[in-house]
Design a protein around this nucleic acid. Structure first.
Lengths: 246, 246
DNA sequence: CCACTAATCTGGTATATACCAAATGAAAAC
DNA sequence: GTTTTCATTTGGTATATACCAGATTAGTGG
């Protein structure tokens, strides 16, 4: 498809037609995950449009989750979404398996923190309660999937920071502290990334991602951990099995 | 805040600073839901930037879910998100209550359809099985929240289309056909809107929304209904309670 | 006061151009 | 063959301008 195929007499904007073309190319399976897409300038020349219009089409395809931009290196075809059953597990790394072929966890920061009003409500602790706070990036095949900011009640997990946080913390908490996750309260919404998240996920700050917040409860029904994951929108897929209550 | 406050010697792009300003204005609560935001041209003049840059900031704020654009009428502050507990109910209208003060359901189309491969898999029926297909928009206080495309097995609901579809179909199916929803399988992801969806939700087609797909099962464990809801991203918030299984 | 028309405002689409800065590839030097 | 430097390519940011078309407001006439 090229400039001759852009029917400019129709009502369909040029950028839409380019979106359709790119979408078809990606969805056809002809391009592998992480395969490079043509540059803004190449598309502009190919279709006889301005670079800004080409850019717009590429941004839309990114928005659709079919592609991602990687700094000045170019844009690439997105890998498949990760299906995460939120009604069965509260730990993605436990789900995928830490020894799975593609999962990498990077610790970005860790520190002691004190519960503010919001956190004290989430964790059912008094304001000022000492918490562990750690921020990590989860990468799948070296491709950042989501950023997680998590808080754990310090009194329940003495010496938590002496352990390697590049693993499932729920598995760690169960193994080392005998605190198994029994249930979780989860909230999912779409929102924009902040600067740090965007930087860690290699996305512009105004991009939208999917946020998954969860409070994890132990067998005694008390919360012990609160986390926020912000996912690249094109990678996230959450499933659940619901039993209807009346 | 105006042009004097845009510090152009810093590294922060102008559009980011305008985003921050708009975001603060909206989040401060000084603007009510559905209050008008300044136009692109007004912001460009106020901050001494180009209209394209102003536009970019406004689009980002929309993307963040804090505002929505309404044709050529302008941009407005988004209403609050609707929290929808997907682990308890499979019917949003039943949740909100059809006699609730703000819910309106509009039927966009209805027709008989035949199950293709994908639908036959979802509904556990043979390909070619006769289905009801209906597309509806759900509005909250006259503001479109999501578009739903739903399929129901025709043999289970004779004369379904003789009923008013401007109501909860799960409630209708239980009341008129004694087919109560027992459980559901739900999938949530982020994707771009197609043209029809975008038109119905008053959004540009390249905008991302949250898609919620669900298969509804009766007490006999057989699926009877499959639906796809595509939500305006700024309005959706899904919650769930998970029991951890090992 | 109401209806119609014109003017104005709004967001939407597109372009050409300019510049920046990170990343990559090619060429030159050791 | 390896390292360094330069050139090119890439996405990112910004601008001024043009035009379109829907929506609203203002003005005019009955």
């Amino acid at each position: 498809m090229n400039a001759d195929d852009l029917d400019k007499t129709k009502k369909t904007p040029a950028f839409q037609m380019v979106i359709d073309h790119l979408r078809n190319q990606i969805r056809s399976g002809r391009l592998a995950a992480h395969a490079a897409l043509p540059s803004e300038r190449a598309i502009a020349e190919q279709f006889g449009i301005s670079r800004m219009t080409a850019r717009r089409a590429l941004l839309a395809v990114e928005m659709e989750g079919l592609a991602y931009s990687s700094g000045r290196r170019g844009r690439f075809v997105s890998p498949q979404r990760v299906a995460y059953d939120i009604s069965k597990t509260v730990s993605l790394s436990a789900l995928i398996g830490e020894d799975g072929p593609g999962l990498t966890i990077k610790v970005i920061s860790q520190q002691m923190a004190q519960a503010d009003a919001a956190l004290s409500a989430k964790l059912a602790v008094p304001e000022g309660e000492v918490l562990y706070k750690y921020i990590r990036v989860f990468l799948l095949q070296d491709h950042p999937a989501f950023v997680e900011e998590e808080y754990a009640i310090a009194s329940l997990f003495p010496g938590l920071f002496d352990h390697n946080l590049q693993q499932s913390t729920t598995v760690l908490m169960e193994r080392e502290y005998n605190v198994p996750p029994h249930s979780g309260d989860i909230t999912i919404r779409m929102r924009a990334l902040n600067e740090q998240e965007a930087g860690l996920l290699n996305l512009p700050t105004y991009n939208a991602g999917i946020e998954l917040e969860q409070v994890i409860y132990g067998p005694d029904g008390k919360p012990f951990c609160f986390g926020r994951q912000i996912w690249r929108g094109e990678l996230a897929e959450f499933t659940a099995h619901a039993i209807v209550r009346r």
